[in-house]
Design a protein around this nucleic acid. Structure first.
Lengths: 207, 207
DNA sequence: TCTTCCATGTAACGCGTTACATGATTTT
DNA sequence: AAAATCATGTAACGCGTTACATGGAAGA
């Protein structure tokens, strides 16, 4: 029997999840890690190839050499029965809380140091990024939603639908938040100026 | 003049943001990195002490030895004028897109491999985690909101209010998403069973 | 002819975590 | 008497990024 020593890393489970849907080359996996998996997990090919080797060492995936265009042999990977078992038990296991690292919020947290106009341009940047993502999610969700397989809880598209719905909801919330912030900055900017310079041209809120 | 060579890392800006609000020891910074800064950025003391040394090398912070309870001299750090300038210009700079790494969604994406009951218990786990976070944000926001300084765009509490409002909105969206998923799993589980076993006890959706 | 796509690998370096190390004061 | 808090540091290791390396086939 194979070593099967350590449980895979998070990246390992991301790869197993891709291969459980269908077999792929390392190159295919790297492409999926840009989109659509890249929406919630990212990795470069330089990380993927060594991880595939580790997964194979552990007996969780296997490969077959196929025809391909690269200078080295092209390997098509598939998940093994042990790999599927490992993935299933990981999904069923307790969800460990993950350390947060949110650059957008980190910057925003120091936004009191800059002029309201600069703050607004920062928020506008965020807003358009969130809007773009929202549009991408909505488009992809429409495609998944149209497929009746997405109603079957045992079909991959069911899980895709759940994740995309979450993406749409969170981005919608983010868009609304940004619009709320722009409103706050308008009002606060006016308020602040009229407070300090007594220009008294009134609050704009509610107009 | 000091070296001031490389621009700080993200962690460096997180520390500068803390020190721009008030002076602190490394230990204080580590505590803040658990809560409330930990809501959007985390770091351990083993990362913080070397980073403080680098920031001081670059002339962005300085320290004074004060009375303290540790075995080594206790150092209280403050941001320098150059540090405040660096932080301001970072806030005003373009927001670079960050690689996403969302373990919750990654797991959910493979949830089609497990029975609907297991899937539901996973979603229930997420739901209670999101609810707990939402409650923490709401409580902290209430405190910040009550302070009139939080209306002044030049005051740190203004930025705190913006970030907390974002937290509340995103967690509310997450809670609603989880409840929607539970509904989907109820319906889909029934649908699937009645599809396969012709038990025909009807869909529960809408009741 | 130049660029992009297919395809797989390695090396160097930076960031982050866990664990090791020390020791006084305060609280349980 | 034991545990938590204050307080600062180092070492080893794993994960992730950028850059280096190679080369055929298809399209612009």
């Amino acid at each position: 029997m194979p070593p099967e020593a350590s449980i895979p890393s998070h990246l390992g489970f991301a790869i197993l999840g891709l291969l459980a849907r269908r077999q792929r080359t390392g190159y295919d996996i790297a492409k999926a890690m840009e989109r659509p998996v890249g929406y919630f997990w990212t990795a470069r090919h330089s990380q993927i190839y060594p991880e595939l080797a580790r997964l194979e060492d552990a007996g969780l995936v296997r490969h077959r050499v196929v025809d391909g265009a690269g200078p080295r042999p092209t390997k098509r990977y598939a998940v093994t029965a042990a790999g599927k078992r490992a993935l299933r038990s990981w999904v069923a296991s307790e969800l460990e809380p993950q350390p947060v690292r949110d650059l957008e919020t980190l910057k925003l947290w120091s936004v009191w140091l800059v002029a309201p106009e600069i703050a607004k341009s920062f928020v506008r940047q965020s807003l358009s990024a969130h809007k773009a993502r929202l549009a991408a999610y909505e488009e992809e969700l429409a495609g998944v939603d149209a497929d009746t397989d997405s109603r079957d809880p045992g079909h991959p598209l069911f899980a895709s639908r759940l994740t995309l719905e979450g993406g749409v909801r969170s981005r919608r919330a983010a868009v609304e938040w940004c619009e709320w912030m722009l409103d706050e900055l308008d009002w606060a900017g006016d308020h602040h100026r009229s407070d300090r310079h007594r220009q008294g041209h009134g609050a704009r809120r509610g107009t």
